[in-house]
């Protein structure tokens, strides 16, 4: 290819390219400045929350950068998530979960220590946390839970409905052909 300073340099292509780059830079700037974001008062606004495109894609949320058009919410995005990045997020989530459990245990211990005092809310909190932990434990086997429930209701003889046979029964019609 001819150099930029050559007399025969392809002016058109360079011009077009520089224009594209210029536009891209501008768009990038606007995006970084947050001009494309929703108004803070909008329903779908996520202002104030931590923003990560990778996490958005991982959780299948709508992309914060492409949400300016209301009709294409959660639709197409040109952002991609690499496999490596996804694995990282997965691992981090696992660690976060473990950390939370640890802090829960600690908090429980502290609360126990404080239990002598009038901390009623704290006790409730701990209870709630406990339930939460249980739920998260069971979340994986949601399907098995449903199966369990269905098994229960199948084997449950009492919920047989309200069939009533007093001997009288029901008679419709009569000895003729309608």
């Amino acid at each position: 290819m001819p150099s930029k300073n050559s007399i025969n340099r392809p002016k058109l292509t360079t011009n077009v390219r520089s224009k594209q780059q210029k536009l891209a830079r501008k768009r990038d700037q606007r995006e970084r400045a947050g001009h494309f974001n929703q108004a803070r008062s909008a329903d779908g606004s996520r202002s104030g929350e931590a923003k990560s495109v990778a996490l958005d894609i991982y959780f299948g949320k709508e992309d914060s950068t492409t949400s300016r058009d209301q009709s294409h919410r959660g639709g197409l995005t040109n952002k991609t998530l690499s496999k490596k990045r996804a694995q990282k997020i997965e691992r981090n989530l696992k660690y976060a979960q473990q950390r939370r459990l640890l802090t829960d245990v600690q908090a429980g211990l502290e609360n126990k220590a404080d239990d002598d005092e009038m901390n009623v809310d704290g006790g409730n909190k701990a209870l709630l946390r406990k339930q939460e932990i249980e739920q998260s434990k069971n979340k994986k086997n949601n399907m098995s839970l449903i199966r369990e429930a269905l098994w229960n209701s199948i084997e449950d003889a009492q919920s047989q409905g309200l069939t009533l046979a007093t001997g009288q029964g029901t008679t419709l019609g009569g000895p003729f052909f309608p």
């Binding site: 309200l162 009288q168 029901t170 019609g173 309608p178």
Partner: peptide
């Protein structure tokens, strides 16, 4: 036009419900 045919069912509706 659509009179029910002559049937006799052992079951009936529970009047307490």
């Amino acid at each position: 036009t659509t009179q029910p045919s002559w049937i006799q069912s052992k079951l009936e509706l529970n009047n307490e419900d």
